[in-house]
Amino acid sequence: MLKIFTTQLSGQFQRIQSQEEFSIEDGGRLLAQGCAGDGTIYIHGFGELSGIVAEAVDSLEPFPNAKPLFEEKGSMASVLPADRVLIFTRFASDEEAVQLAEALQKDGIPVVAVSAVDGENKLAAAADIHIDSKLKKPMIPAEDGSRYGFPAIMTGLYVYYALRFTVEEILSEYREEI
């Protein structure tokens, strides 16, 4: 089973890398603009993807200028147009994520969103940049025809790191020029 999961996960990462390369680069550029200026990168993950916020803020290698979008008490940070917001959710049809992105856009806040496109891509319409995590169904087939193993946080973290590395590369080039 582990071999099947590893093969499927590796394929998942390769699909993201090859099919979302330009969106990741565009998302990284948008986030880097906030870092290079006076902006903060606010990050929010819905459901299990909230773990990405901890990685971005509390890890040994935090995301540049990152803070959680929501405080522990549930209140949203005061986000300004110089800031950027990075949203992670399972599916692009997540109404709560779509409403958040639309509200931020209405206030002139640039949004990068990461989710799997599962039909109508409402989140892409609400965000400046959308990155498809490609994870639409569980990965491992069971003997009864069902499937299991839905590693949303693993694919989300893969995209998170792709964005982080892109932002750091852009910021490094920016610092060399000034």
Rank of each mutant, 00 (worst) to 15 (best):
L2R: 13
K3Y: 12
K3S: 14
F5Y: 15
T7H: 13
Q8I: 00
L9E: 04
L9T: 07
G11V: 03
G11A: 05
Q12G: 04
Q12S: 11
Q17G: 01
Q17E: 12
S18M: 07
E21M: 06
F22M: 11
I24G: 02
E25C: 09
E25V: 07
D26W: 01
D26Q: 14
R29V: 02
Q33M: 06
Q33V: 01
G37V: 02
G37S: 13
G37H: 05
D38E: 14
G39F: 12
G39D: 05
Y42D: 10
I43M: 13
H44Q: 11
G45P: 08
F46D: 02
G47A: 14
S50P: 00
I52W: 00
I52L: 15
A54Y: 10
A54V: 01
A54N: 08
A56V: 02
A56E: 00
V57K: 05
D58P: 00
L60G: 15
L60S: 12
P62I: 09
F63N: 03
P64V: 06
P64C: 05
K67H: 05
P68Q: 04
F70G: 06
F70W: 01
E71C: 12
A77S: 15
A77R: 15
V79T: 13
A82R: 15
R84Q: 13
T89R: 03
R90L: 05
S93D: 11
Q99H: 09
L100V: 13
L100Y: 13
E102P: 00
Q105F: 09
D107N: 15
D107I: 02
D107Y: 01
G108Y: 06
I109A: 08
V112S: 05
S115Q: 07
S115V: 00
A116I: 02
V117P: 01
D118L: 09
A124R: 14
A126I: 12
A127I: 09
A127W: 02
D128N: 15
I129R: 03
I131Y: 03
S133N: 14
S133A: 12
L135C: 06
M139N: 02
I140A: 09
P141F: 10
A142Q: 14
D144P: 06
G145N: 04
Y148H: 11
F150E: 03
P151C: 07
P151V: 10
I153R: 02
T155Q: 03
G156H: 03
G156C: 05
G156P: 01
Y158Q: 08
Y158T: 03
Y158H: 14
V159R: 03
Y161K: 05
A162Q: 13
A162C: 14
A162H: 03
L163G: 05
L163R: 01
V167K: 02
E168G: 00
I170P: 12
I170Q: 10
I170H: 09
L171P: 07
R175E: 15
I178Y: 06
I178T: 03
